[in-house]
Design a binder for these strands. Structure first.
Length: 200
DNA sequence: TGCCTGATTGCCT
DNA sequence: GGCAATCAGGCAA
């Protein structure tokens, strides 16, 4: 079967549209332990100099440099002393924006996800940005990785291997989670009625 | 169900 | 030194 890996051009759109476009796409990670994959059901956009909540707000630093690079790369940061969060870099080279992946519907490697997280509730394996990286085995070692190449890559929402009940899901826009600044912007998007989002 | 808190590390002020 | 794009568990209702 042909795998529909996303192309470079997919990422060449403004960050909000990229965020919405990523809903329904498949995130895959292939490690020596095995392969895990899930459908992206929840994302958040982080913009640049007009978004005080964004890591890119204060400009380029060593730790946020992936956001300022070309789009479609893995911007991974360590948070609260124990979790990694995965973003897809967005916007052209030189502009610091990104899309945080907040929740997945697990598809492949569910047993491995359970082993990694210690949870047996499928709905709770990947329903949060720190949880999905743990379940998928993603850490800082993949920082800057090009998300159209192995081991960590994205498949089109049309990939035939991952048939979904509703191929044209409705998208809900809400405020982003866990912020102290720029709380009011409607930059969080999730698939309506999904049982796998972090919160309604 | 929902609020509150502790855990634990690195970055930026 | 403060705080962060988090999470699980405890407790009240």
């Amino acid at each position: 079967m042909v795998r529909m890996v996303l192309t470079k051009d997919f990422f060449k759109k403004d960050t909000v549209n990229l965020a919405k476009s990523l809903l329904g796409c498949i995130l895959v990670n292939e490690t020596p332990e095995g392969r895990t994959a899930g459908i992206i059901v929840e994302v958040e956009s982080y913009l640049g100099k007009n978004d005080p909540a964004s890591h890119a707000f204060r400009g380029l630093t060593e730790s946020n440099r992936v956001m300022f690079g070309p789009p479609g790369r893995a911007y991974i940061y360590f948070i609260y002393g124990m979790y990694f969060c995965l973003n897809v870099s967005a916007a052209p080279d030189g502009v610091g924006e990104g899309v945080l992946l907040r929740a997945l519907e697990p598809m492949d490697g569910i047993e491995l996800m359970e082993k990694r997280t210690g949870s047996e509730n499928v709905r709770r394996l990947c329903n949060g940005p720190g949880k999905l990286t743990r379940a998928m085995g993603i850490d800082k070692g993949l920082a800057g990785h090009d998300l159209i190449t192995k081991p960590l890559y994205l498949l089109s929402a049309d990939d035939p291997k991952y048939k979904r009940q509703n191929p044209e899901p409705k998208i809900v826009a809400t405020t982003r989670v866990g912020l102290s600044r720029a709380k009011d912007s409607l930059l969080r998007f999730y698939i309506k009625d999904s049982l796998f989002v972090s919160r309604k």
